[in-house]
Design a binder for these strands. Structure first.
Lengths: 231, 231
DNA sequence: GTATAATTGTGAATTCTTGAACAAATTATA
DNA sequence: TATAATTTGTTCAAGAATTCACAATTATAC
């Protein structure tokens, strides 16, 4: 019904709106939000439409109720828990960001196969041994699992997560895991992303240089056409 | 000409193919790659087509030359450098992954406003003060900038990066930065991603429970129709 | 009040991406 | 050597996401 992209944007709208609210702003118009995110106003209106919330023509949206609508739509009524598998560098960074309660959502437990990490607390989050996965997920009633591990065991760990009741997985491992159709997976592949940026950076540079060349050898299409037809 | 999605997938193909090659495999067929990534074979063939490389009907693709084609397409002929701004938890994790040479691509310098970090070396990468940005980018001929900072100064730092010659930005900050059209930006918003996964996890769970309910109250559409028409 | 200007909500058009399908090509096999 | 079987390259259709464009609606100015 609602698309992934819409959900992502709603999350962005919320962050911006919260900031604007503390700055004292009370209403906002679609093109303002659009400008902040560099998207088109129609997109903003469409997304907000899906919330069921209505703006006021010639006046915009009231921020406070709009925020309520977004929260209503995005957030679980009850606080929602996540578990992290893999307390490496990336895992630690994620804990630093999401271990403390963050909205209705927080990482509640971490797991690592390294015995020296088990038992420790990182950013307020306890690290358990891998064989406690099922138990701790049940205890914390977690629904989200975050994989911050190398690819090797990703699939089997993922299977354990799903068996334990996890229905959403945020996968930072390079392996594309397979899940049954009633589990949601988001792949975040930092290596691939890095490569992509590098690829397009190079292209942009080439493009810019071509443009520069064109500018310097100022020959408009019109002039060019003239040259051709004159022959 | 070539889409972002295609570039991303080519990067994934490469990683898989490299692995398969060390395992001794010499050829691969589109459906094999497709199965590993859970996409359709036609997509794989399409992507490979764009490389200009041709497979062999009834036999597949030869892995070694295919890998060469991908490298030819994705990689810069010269090693390409990136700089990282923000040596917080996330920045450190990125350095741990990408500071050493990684393919033709590496993070060559880091920057932080915290004086206690400046001068230190993290995962083999030196940390410079912010005001050295322009100089170090020029020296390292970097084309990619990675922003791993909070949103506040993201725009002004981004502007500096672009002025210094950066043409690709990987932005982990929550702010959607604005750049001229000849600069490529990729936003990776971990908070929004986390929220998205949480949202769909909840939905999947609901969906699964509905399905379960349907199963338990076993009434097929046919039976239902029968009941109706019998009345 | 009335007219004007501006903004929303949304159907239609457009663009981008994916999938299905099949001819052409190639290997394997009888 | 001919036949069958299989996989590629590619066209065309389908699907998804975005953008346009405009009627409906509301605030504001006069």
């Amino acid at each position: 019904m609602v698309s992934e992209k819409t959900v992502e944007r709603l999350s962005l709208y919320r962050r911006i709106l919260q900031q604007l609210r503390v700055e004292g702003k009370e209403t906002i118009m679609s093109h303002e939000l659009a400008n902040l995110l560099h998207i088109k106003p129609a997109q903003v209106r469409r997304d907000i439409m899906q919330l069921g919330y209505s703006g006021i023509p010639n006046s915009g949206y009231k921020i406070r109720p709009l925020l309520e609508s977004i929260a209503n739509f995005l957030d679980s009524p009850l606080p929602q828990s996540a578990v992290l598998v893999g307390v490496g560098h990336l895992g630690l960074a994620l804990l630093a960001n999401f271990a403390g309660r963050w909205r209705q959502l927080a990482i509640r437990a971490a797991f690592d196969k390294d015995p020296s990490k088990v038992g420790q607390t990182f950013h307020g989050c306890r690290c358990y041994p891998m064989y406690d996965l099922q138990k701790v997920i049940a205890e914390t009633k977690s629904v989200v699992g975050i994989l911050a591990i190398p690819g090797e065991n990703a699939q089997s760990i993922c299977d354990t997560l799903v068996q334990s009741g996890i229905s959403g997985i945020l996968n930072f491992s390079p392996l594309r895991i397979k899940v049954s159709e009633n589990v949601f997976v988001e792949h975040v592949d930092l290596s691939a992303t890095f490569e992509k940026v590098s690829f397009f950076a190079r292209r942009m540079k080439h493009y810019a240089e071509e443009e520069k060349w064109k500018m310097e050898n100022e020959t408009t299409d019109d002039e060019y056409e003239t040259i051709i037809t004159k022959q």
